[in-house]
Simulated assay, not measured.
Amino acid sequence: MGVFMPDAVAEVGHLLAVVEALDPRAAQELRGGLPRCDSTFGLGLAFFLAATANGARAWLGPKRCRLLEQLDGGALLDDLDLALAPRHRRTADGREWRVMSIPVMDGTAAGGCRGLLCAISDGADLQTGSALVLQMRLPALGAVQLVAAG
C-alpha cells in the first residue's frame, strides 16, 4: 500500500526490553498478549487489538505505566501510542483505508518480533461491502498477503 507507518515492531521491542529490565515476569505476560505465527494467531491478534484499542497504556496497565513514566516522564509510552495508532490513507483508486502496524512475535526465536500491516476499507459512495488486507513477511515464505472482502 506504500503507507508510511511508525515502526510499531521496534517500539514494542524497545518497550519489552525496558519492561524486561524492570520486571521480567511482567514482560513475559506482555509477550503472551502479542499475536504469534502459530495456531493461536487469530486469538492473539484479536486480544492484542482489543487490549490496545485504548492505547499502549491500557495494554500495559496502570502499575507498569507508573514505573515507565518515572523513568522518562512517559516519553516511551507516547512513542508507543503513536506507533500503534491507526492511520487513515486514501489509495489511488479513491478508497479510504484504516491502516495499523501490528507487532507479531516470532514463535521460533525468543524475543524475535515481526510486523503485520493491517488495512481495512469500508464501502463508501458507490462501493459496497468492506475489505481487509493483512501483509506480513514470514521467515519461511517471505512476503505474504491475505485479502478478504465481503
Rank of each mutant, 00 (worst) to 15 (best):
D38V: 11
T40K: 09
G42C: 03
L43A: 03
L43T: 15
G44Q: 04
L45C: 11
F47E: 11
L49A: 06
R57N: 03
A58K: 07
L60R: 01
G61I: 00
P62V: 12
K63D: 08
K63C: 01
R64L: 14
R66W: 06
R66D: 11
L67S: 04
L68A: 00
E69W: 01
G73S: 06
A75E: 13
L76I: 02
D79N: 10
L80Y: 04
L82M: 07
A83Y: 04
A85L: 12
R87W: 06
R87G: 10
H88S: 11
R89A: 11
R90D: 05
E96A: 15
E96W: 06
W97P: 12
V99Y: 08
M100P: 08
S101N: 14
P103Q: 01
P103V: 05
V104S: 02
M105G: 06
G107D: 09
G107M: 09
R114H: 07
G115R: 05
S121V: 00
G123C: 05
A124Q: 05
A124F: 08
D125F: 10
L126M: 07
L126F: 07
L126A: 03
L126P: 00
T128K: 10
A131D: 09
L132Q: 02
V133R: 14
R137D: 00
L138Q: 10
L138W: 08
P139E: 12
P139Y: 05
P139N: 07
L141G: 01
A143K: 04
Q145T: 15
L146A: 02
